[in-house]
Amino acid sequence: MIDLLSYGAFFLTMALTYAVICLGLNLQWGQTGLFNVGVAGFVAVGAYVSSILTTPAIDGRLGGFDLPIVIGWLGGGLGAGFLCFLLGALTLRLRSDYLAIATFGAAVVIQLALLNLEGITGGPFGIGFIPRPFGTLAEQPGLFAAANLAVLIVLVLVCYLALQHLTRSPWGRVLRALREDEEAAKALGKDPVTYRLQAFAIGGFVMGLGGAAQAHFIGFIAPDNYLPTLTFQVWTMLIVGGSGNMRGAILGAILVWAIWALSGSLVASVFPPDQQARAASLQIVLIGVALCLVLLLRPYGILGEAGTLRAPLRRALRRTPNSLSEGQKTNV
């Protein structure tokens, strides 16, 4: 019973770290319409920055600085947010899919840096002994799991409320106006690039925060944790939950993580060990197909009721490619 409970707590804690990342992506995509293909890279930056800041000092690697966990998390968020800011500043004035290409490239380079900058990232073996919140409770697994879960619940709640607070402010109103009708918003003096850049950077901050929280929850990180599959998982969570909808993003994260974990253990129990890699790739094929199906059939999410923000997104996304490119021509 205790085992089951602590497994449940473990599962939910992990799912909630994804929920934080998913909330960040929701600000970028659901609220602002920016396609980020480098989620894994920004999550990795958050995780690594926080780990370097908080781990005890070690020979042969930068840091650790043994700082409090909270500082590490903030640092991780700021690192990822700053990176998003740079990429956004580079591409947001250009065609809308240049951002996608640039974030994809950034994730590739971040992966390379994690592997090769051994003096900073620990190379292929990554960083271990990342302090865990309430580490002193580690003797009592049940209590420890509950404490970790509580930390993550608080973090998700804080992110949710903060983002909700932001989107309901005059700033959020401008963001919505830009999404509903960019031309009209510009005629009212709103500069689309500024607002998109801010939303992209803030979303990156939240993603980095999620990555940092995840690293401290698992306790060790390595480049392999941040492959493109992670990007894809987070996207699936957001799409399933219904983009534009904050609660949907959280729910989607938990649901997709559950499906992922269950189908993973199903693969492990049904297939012989030598076939498991193949079965795992089939798992990704099916989810890739599912993502395409959702885009084709229910582009605004499977879950999630009529969130007020989804109708405008739908309209914004229904604009034909031609009218989009026409719009761009007039901007340059």
């Binding site: 089939l282 094929v285 890739g288 197909v289 996304l317 604009r319 490119s325």
Partner: peptide
């Protein structure tokens, strides 16, 4: 295209298609 989807939805779907195609090869 026929549904008049935005360009970025096409980009996104190509991302999903890439994953499916690649892992199908791996399978």
């Amino acid at each position: 295209r026929n549904a008049g989807s935005a360009q970025i939805i096409l980009v996104m779907s190509s991302f999903g298609a890439a994953l499916a195609l690649r892992n199908l090869l791996e399978f």
